[in-house]
Design a protein around this nucleic acid. Sequence first.
DNA 1: TGCCTGCCTGACCGATCGGACAGTTAGGCT
DNA 2: AGCCTAACTGTCCGATCGGTCAGGCAGGCA
Lengths: 191, 191
Amino acid sequence: MTTPSSALALQRIALQQFATLGFAGASIGSIAQAAGLAKSSVLYHYASKEALLTAAVQPAVDALAAVVAGYPEGAGEEERERFVERFIDFLLEHRLAVHLFINQGQSLSGIPVLGRANALVQRFGELVAERIPSTADRIRFGVALGGAAYTLVAAANWSAGEVPETAEIRAALLDAVSSLLGQPARASAAP
Amino acid sequence: MTTPSSALALQRIALQQFATLGFAGASIGSIAQAAGLAKSSVLYHYASKEALLTAAVQPAVDALAAVVAGYPEGAGEEERERFVERFIDFLLEHRLAVHLFINQGQSLSGIPVLGRANALVQRFGELVAERIPSTADRIRFGVALGGAAYTLVAAANWSAGEVPETAEIRAALLDAVSSLLGQPARASAAP
DNA sequence: TGCCTGCCTGACCGATCGGACAGTTAGGCT
DNA sequence: AGCCTAACTGTCCGATCGGTCAGGCAGGCA
């Protein structure tokens, strides 16, 4: 009843190519070749290229919906810290899909699953903007979240040497994001 | 002798479509249509799609080279601050090209001008990493630069309401990036 | 007047794309 | 044995892609 493992492997490969080459740049044929299948076999499992993309990013959209739904109501310090932590974990787990949302979400908004992802991100931004109406603070928020998402996918390609382990990356991201969101803009000195 | 204005408009439109739709997703026909020309006319001005991309991003690559070349040798406070300012101004002026570098630089590294852009970004990162070898600090660097670049191009699409003026954005970006690069990681309390 | 040159265009070409379709296997069930 | 189904494949189709080519067309110059 659950999705068979072959289909899961196909989704992983497809997501990888969609994220790095773009939806238009990645062809069904190249995805099939990377999976060791014929083009027709990919279209046997998924009715269309769009359906394959939908299946590949659906888990990330659901996880994003859960994260946004868990945005803290109050202004408690611990609550907000835990939220940032959940968000970072979401980024770590679904980094390729997040990369796709950020870079192709607008041009692919006609595809329902990406339209939903866009709506979630927009609602996310509204939630934050509602609480911190200053432009400087909102840009801090954008730099923190966008920067974290970008760093995860792009830095690995450019870093010449070895790649640090996940736990270290997680801690470093938490440090950077907390330092941006921890205090209001232009008030670098804590009380 | 200088580039005629019609070619400049073509470069602007092409860069816009390359950045938002991806190099593979943007067709010469759609670029021509947006410019009010026929497809053949675009190929009259530029020998190939690749040549058009090169012409469109060349100024940004040159500007990036100048910025990287101006990386301060010493550790002076003012020097580094001025450098961050120059970098932010570069991002503001060439935001679309930067978006293209970040998101398609790897998959388009076969095109010479993007290979050069990749080398510049990598050298940029090495310059910084050489001085601050900690993973946390390097990720701070990535979040700051990637986040700033991302915020400039992506946030505008998602922000529901009005867009703040350039000067305000510039100040807010300077604030956020300086707060990330101003002091080492895990030392949020200034003396 | 004729001619040249820069800008632009439609018609056309081969390659590749997403997708439809008719098979062909291999394995389980009766 | 016969049969059914899931997984997979090669072949074909129309559309679109990047790119070539022969020519139209206006303006400057003789």
